[in-house]
């Protein structure tokens, strides 16, 4: 089937099988391998992308469902001005270890902060409940999102040195 999908601002017209999952379309057809696959039941969230402004799991969506949609992936998070504050937060606060869940975690965090730029710790944890991380215990992910939140609100963000045991 012919689909036309905007990904990170670029329009792509492609012929896909109806059964092709959006994540495979992004990874195999467009070569955007930043979006990962971690499970097939929609639990892990490694495949999270933003479709028409909403964080969704691209492994639980057919590419044909995204026909006409605007998709944002981790590859589009940074812009000419540099890293997105969420990416910067993950870097500054050691919010990633193996990095496999990270693209999905970052996209969920971006979507969260677009709705609420000053979330509480509970709201952050609730906002990323659909993204599983096996490495960090979420501690530094929460701090990374807090960093980004502060930065987005024009406050002084707190990096790793604010907390780490030395």
């Amino acid at each position: 089937m012919e689909v036309s999908i905007s990904v990170n601002g670029t329009n792509h017209s492609s012929d896909v099988e109806p059964r092709t999952l959006l994540v495979h379309y992004l990874r195999e057809d467009l070569g955007l391998t930043g979006t990962h696959v971690g499970c097939e039941t929609g639990y892990c969230g490694a495949c999270t992308v933003i479709v028409d402004g909403r964080a969704v799991k691209s492994c639980t969506m057919f590419a044909v469902q995204a026909d006409g949609a605007e998709v944002r992936t981790v590859e589009g998070a940074a812009n000419d001005a540099g890293l997105h504050p969420v990416q910067e937060g993950f870097w500054e606060c050691h919010g990633l270890q193996c990095g496999y869940c990270t693209p999905g975690m970052i996209m969920s965090s971006i979507a969260l902060l677009e709705e609420n730029d000053n979330p509480s710790e509970d709201e952050i944890r609730h906002g990323i409940e659909g993204n599983l991380c096996r490495c960090t215990g979420y501690h530094n992910i929460v701090r990374s999102v807090q960093y980004a939140s502060a930065k987005l609100r024009g406050e002084e963000p707190q990096g790793a040195s604010a907390e780490v045991t030395t």
Partner: peptide, 23 residues
């Protein structure tokens, strides 16, 4: 040694540019 240093591996990983086997 002993200092807090941002990770060298992160810039690629936070931009989806890390290369895992399936990539």
């Amino acid at each position: 040694m002993g200092g807090i240093v941002r990770r060298k591996e992160d810039p690629s990983l936070i931009q989806g540019k890390g290369r895992y086997v399936d990539d």
